[in-house]
Design a protein around this nucleic acid. Structure first.
Lengths: 223, 223
DNA sequence: CCTCATTTCAAACACCCGTTTGAAATGTAC
DNA sequence: GTACATTTCAAACGGGTGTTTGAAATGAGG
């Protein structure tokens, strides 16, 4: 069998299992079994399990990240700062196009992203900020321009809150889809969730700051 | 050594390791080693690793949940619906009081909550909704009353978005604290993060709904 | 067809896991 | 102080993990 066929089969089996079970809880024997490939093939073709994980993520990142970077550059080249909802909407198209590259591509990628951030703490964060730091910087700059009332630290926290929202929602998206279907008789897909996410995130990021005194008065009023 | 001393030492060691490394990636040997206790002690006193995990979580849940339920009942007994920020502020006091019960109690509990929701998919969700379903129902009811413009399904999704924000932020709080200290010269603690979280969550949950047409026009405008 | 590099394969490696066991130690009541 | 129950302990159990090995099979070029 040709080299690329085996590698492809391993990557396909690995990404689906990683998305379902997480990185640490998926064994190489499960992967090679689903890929119908010998156990040793992973270490022969990729070197190690860690390298396989990176390869699985890179297959999507190398497609999504350049498109995001280009869109961010377009917005940054404008004369006036872009509105926050428009900045966030940049993510929609590139993410949904992953669906064309591969069936369930968007869901798989976002689930993998979620797993990567929650499974092995910090690894994925460092990997992305190291390889795609310029993309992140442009995004943060756009958000800062759209929210002149917020200082850099506040934006840092709110963007991480938003990352948590996305990552957690996608990591547990299957369970959420099931609950939504059972309790609210609505069949949810990845696009409808993205559609629901955007206004939530935009409102959260741009929320007015509440100062400590107000928090205390709120807590007292509730007791 | 008395029974409760050994059990306490195991619970203390387990919860800190669980919070740091997650449930699946923490071994009983690590726990008993940190607790300075024999390996077999966990199975002798708790029965199994799964039962130990539940015991660790229950130590906090049995304190927090009744307090939350009482506060929710007070708000529900009012004549007029409560404002959303006030509903969310209910969580602050009970969570911060965990700090008095045990040093770092609030952080530990929220980290454990995050781990429980992301590590073993669905287990903790079922456990909480089974044992504390009435508390959750009262909270959801209060949110619905405070946001009459949102239907039940929209609120379901937005509350899960918010759960994701909290859980992810707390699971990776150590890393975020470090970054915030290094990049923004601000020492962050759990209370300051909660203070930043509330306005973000309140704005996100109460955000105006955006309909598909607007989303499309937004995406096009950005391209 | 022979040669040589690439790829596959079964088997084994060393290690870590949660759990169990049965004896030794400790605590407790009479 | 003896008798009994509780708790601790070292050791082992069966099973799963990622990785390595060396031989067998398959590929491509002269």
């Amino acid at each position: 069998m040709s080299r690329i066929q085996t590698q492809q089969k391993i990557l396909d089996a690995a990404e689906s299992l990683f998305a379902e079970t997480g990185f640490n809880d998926t064994s190489l024997r499960q992967i090679t079994s689903r890929a119908e490939v010998n156990l040793a093939a992973v270490n022969y073709h990729f070197g190690s399990k860690k390298a396989l994980i990176q390869a699985v993520l890179q297959r999507y990142l190398k497609v999504v990240m350049p498109r995001l970077e280009h869109q961010f550059e377009v917005l940054l080249a404008r004369q006036k700062p872009t509105q926050l909802p428009e900045v966030l909407a940049v993510f929609v198209q590139p993410l949904l196009e992953l669906e064309q590259i591969k069936r369930q591509g968007t869901t798989l990628f976002l689930q993998l992203l979620g797993r990567g951030y929650t499974d092995v703490q910090g690894h994925l964060r460092k990997f992305i900020s190291h390889h795609y730091g310029s993309v992140l910087n442009k995004f943060v700059l756009l958000v800062q321009q759209s929210c002149p009332g917020l200082d850099a630290a506040e934006i840092f926290w709110r963007l991480h809150f938003s990352l948590g929202t996305v990552v957690f929602t996608m990591a547990s998206s299957e369970a959420l889809f099931d609950i939504a279907a059972a309790d609210y008789h609505q069949q949810a897909d990845i696009e409808s969730v993205i559609r629901r996410l955007l206004p939530y995130l935009a409102a959260g990021i741009a929320a007015p700051v509440i100062y400590p005194e107000q928090l205390n008065s709120m807590a007292q009023a509730a007791s």
